[in-house]
């Protein structure tokens, strides 16, 4: 481990204006791209690429043959949504390196997104309600 590498518990004395020292505190300052540590990270990137590709192929196959094979459309849709969130989580965690940031930062970014739970339920329910009003009355 290089002298510059620091972990969560290191106290960095930083003063205003010296942003460069803050640069990717948790990830920067490795020196050799041929090192085992670097190669491990690259192989992880390709592994995630494989996962994203396979999940996309499964999604397309479900889209083409899912209902034809007798699966109810509602069930196929549940699979679509789960696979979408699965893919999104990998992109954010590995490609955007959010998984490598401090937990407190990860939580700060993710908590506002919980508003989507209300947002989606409320508005889709509203759409469904108006369809019911239009068809019944």
């Amino acid at each position: 481990m290089s002298a510059h590498h620091h972990n969560d518990n290191d106290t960095q004395v930083l003063y205003e204006g010296d942003q460069s020292k803050l640069y990717s505190g948790l990830m920067n300052h490795h020196s050799d791209i041929q090192s085992a540590d670097s190669k491990k990270q690259v192989s992880r990137i390709w592994k995630v690429t494989g996962i994203l590709a396979i999940v996309t192929i499964i999604e397309v196959a479900l889209g083409l043959y899912g209902t034809g094979a007798g699966m109810p459309k509602g069930l196929v849709n549940v699979f679509f949504l789960l696979l979408t969130i699965y893919k999104a989580a990998y992109i954010v965690r590995v490609f955007m390196h959010l998984g490598d940031e401090k937990k407190s930062f990860l939580i700060t970014v993710l908590i506002p997104l919980t508003l989507f739970i209300w947002f989606i339920i409320a508005f889709l329910y509203d759409g469904g309600f108006w369809l019911e009003m239009n068809t019944k009355f």
């Binding site: 106290t11 960095q12 401090k102």
Partner: peptide, 25 residues
């Protein structure tokens, strides 16, 4: 508590990168 008292970066993230995250949010 200390890390939030100033002089440190509690998130260990630069201003620009944090603002990019908040813009994306």
């Amino acid at each position: 508590v200390k890390s939030w008292n100033g002089g440190h970066s509690p998130f260990n993230v630069s201003y620009g990168k944090m603002m990019m995250w908040f813009f994306l949010l």
